[in-house]
Computed example of a mutant assay.
Amino acid sequence: MKDVANATNYLNMDNKELFKIYSKNKDREIRNILIERHLYLVNLLARKYINKGVEFEDIYQVASLALIYAIDRYDIEKGFEFSSFATPTIVGEIKKYFRDKVWTLRVPRRVQELSKKISEAKLVLEQESKKHPKAKDIAKYLGCTEEDVLEAMEASYGYQPISLDATSNDDSEDKDITLIDKIGQEENNFRDIEHNDFISKFMETLNELEIKIFKDRFFLDKTQSTIAKELDISQMTVSRLERKIVDKLRKEYEKNI
């Protein structure tokens, strides 16, 4: 009778109260209640990976195990909402499952292994900084180069290619449109606008002499000697200032990518 009473009490408690108790006694009955209450999260996240070459039941099982893992690791005292804590854990386990089981394209083993480490690193860094980590952050955490991280991240998208002739699987009116129909053409004008905006902001960081050299060299195609004569300075000075401008331009560009 006591166990029945406890079960009834647990069912009447909210999630925060249950997590506080579970963190102390790890009661299996409480965990079962918490699992049941958060299966909606498993269903929601698992459905995002439908039609990627794996049965939904398999994805759902992986996500369910990840939910249990998240419940066991969750610390309510840190002040995070459980859904915010559990989501990256569940998604990470699903992606890990895909990388381990569903590599359709031939990818080097070292890249597959690095891809797994990147997934784990992302989870840790996201929880620490509360934001999506950049490639350089992951590279620093793993002790590898940024190029290696980018290579592995790009390769991870190749575990299950989808035909461009495949139709949409949603319930919209466009469900009979193929994926290739949805691929837009590149609009060069948008790129020009972005470039012009970047160049305009960059030129604000230059002095009058640097602006003159920048425009003459890269927009008017003047030679260094021609610019030197117009400014009555040596060609070596023009060359030195040009290198300085290019270095500054590269740094500004890297800050904005």
Rank of each mutant, 00 (worst) to 15 (best):
2 K>E: 13
4 V>F: 07
5 A>D: 11
6 N>A: 15
6 N>I: 15
7 A>Y: 10
7 A>G: 08
10 Y>H: 15
17 E>F: 01
25 N>W: 14
26 K>W: 12
26 K>Y: 14
29 E>W: 04
29 E>P: 02
30 I>G: 00
33 I>S: 01
47 R>D: 14
47 R>H: 13
49 Y>S: 12
52 K>D: 07
55 E>L: 02
55 E>Y: 04
56 F>L: 03
57 E>M: 05
58 D>V: 04
60 Y>P: 03
60 Y>D: 05
60 Y>R: 04
63 A>F: 01
65 L>G: 08
65 L>Q: 12
65 L>V: 10
66 A>S: 06
67 L>R: 02
68 I>V: 08
71 I>E: 07
72 D>N: 12
74 Y>W: 04
75 D>C: 06
78 K>I: 06
79 G>C: 04
82 F>C: 00
82 F>I: 00
84 S>C: 04
88 P>N: 03
89 T>G: 03
90 I>L: 01
91 V>P: 01
94 I>L: 10
94 I>P: 14
100 D>C: 09
101 K>T: 10
102 V>P: 03
104 T>W: 09
105 L>F: 08
107 V>S: 06
108 P>A: 12
108 P>D: 11
109 R>Y: 12
110 R>L: 12
111 V>E: 05
113 E>I: 03
115 S>M: 01
117 K>A: 07
118 I>M: 02
122 K>F: 06
123 L>V: 03
123 L>Q: 09
124 V>Y: 14
125 L>W: 11
128 E>P: 10
130 K>C: 14
132 H>S: 12
132 H>L: 08
134 K>E: 09
135 A>E: 12
135 A>S: 09
145 T>Y: 05
147 E>Y: 01
147 E>P: 00
149 V>D: 02
154 E>I: 07
155 A>C: 07
155 A>N: 08
158 G>L: 09
160 Q>H: 14
161 P>D: 00
163 S>Q: 00
167 T>N: 06
168 S>G: 11
168 S>C: 10
171 D>H: 15
171 D>Q: 15
173 E>C: 13
173 E>S: 13
174 D>P: 15
175 K>I: 14
176 D>N: 08
176 D>P: 05
182 K>Q: 04
182 K>A: 06
186 E>S: 05
186 E>A: 05
187 E>S: 02
188 N>Y: 02
193 I>T: 05
195 H>L: 04
196 N>A: 01
198 F>W: 04
202 F>D: 03
202 F>E: 05
203 M>K: 14
206 L>T: 15
207 N>S: 09
210 E>I: 11
210 E>F: 11
211 I>H: 13
218 F>G: 11
218 F>Q: 09
222 K>T: 10
228 A>F: 10
229 K>H: 10
229 K>E: 06
229 K>V: 03
233 I>E: 07
236 M>I: 11
241 L>E: 08
242 E>C: 14
242 E>H: 14
245 I>D: 09
245 I>P: 02
245 I>L: 12
247 D>G: 13
248 K>S: 13
257 I>F: 15
